[in-house]
Design a protein around this nucleic acid. Structure first.
Lengths: 150, 150
DNA sequence: TAAATATATATCGCATGCGATACATTTTTA
DNA sequence: TAAAAATGTATCGCATGCGATATATATTTA
């Protein structure tokens, strides 16, 4: 039975990571409902609030999402009136994503959300800092070793 | 602009958590393909390798998944011949999930996966320990405060 | 410059993940 | 014990997330 010790759920790092991500996203749902946003849509809006505008591939690089996720999601945000999508005049392949007035205004309604989430997560600033750094370290390691099998 | 500082992606803890979970699951895909398992199916199999058998609600409590996810997933695992599903003789509502020979045997093929993933994640044992504990702390905090708005 | 490549986005199919609802069976209550 | 409530599972609809492929446009190459 010792042989299988490494396969115990309680010995996996991926499992609490998977649960944490899932549960935290779940805790956002009630906060985001008044803004008519899902969690992924919220991430996209945060990106746009910082960048003002972007094409899909730059957005995808920043959020680690591909067009097969972003294109339909952006079409939904356009339908809600939060963003505009138009072909770039410089490059007919590019799609320029820009905030509308309404999408920009949403930012004000969103300002309370980060503090609400900090209360849910309930770590000390020091703990949060350590967790943050370890997560980015893992991300870096994962990206670094991504193409080992080539 | 200071007002919106808290809304920057680089100031969110949820974002690297979300990315880490997503990217790590992505890294499992090639390891799990030979076993014909997705990540969530792998989690379910790990649970069953430990428990031998279970009903759906106990499994759901352990994995934080509801029947709307588990029922179709378990039907797929049954179709692959890894598990059996049958009504409990004691309680006609309960569905007993048990490993088949083939499902149990899969455990041997899976033993190398945890070490492969540790290599991808590439943290020191100390870092992994800290990350593990912080994640479970967050999970506890999230579950604890779950019913605040009642 | 015509053909081959590369780039940017879109679409398709499948597997979650979850809110909401429906159904069957058991347990509790009046 | 008949009705009500609780429990366990299943189904539906929608939003990701991603592998694979298709399409349109730009760039490079022969």
């Amino acid at each position: 039975m010792e042989v299988y010790e490494s396969l115990r759920l309680s010995n996996q790092l991926c499992f609490p990571l998977y649960l944490c991500s899932k549960e935290i996203i779940g805790r956002y749902t009630p906060f985001l409902k008044p803004l008519d946003l899902t969690y992924t849509q919220y991430i996209v809006m945060m990106y746009l609030w910082e960048q003002q505008h972007s094409n899909i591939s730059d957005m995808g690089k920043a959020l680690l999402l591909d067009t097969n996720t972003l294109t339909p999601l952006l079409q939904k945000l356009e339908a809600k009136g939060y963003i505009e999508r138009q072909k770039s005049p410089n490059d007919g392949r590019e799609m320029i994503i820009a905030l509308t007035e309404r999408g920009y205004a949403l930012r004000t309604e969103a300002t309370k959300i980060p503090e609400l989430m900090r209360t849910c997560i309930n770590l000390t600033p020091e703990e949060a800092e350590i967790l943050y750094k370890l997560l980015y370290k893992v991300l870096l390691n994962l990206e670094g070793g991504k193409h080992d099998n080539h």
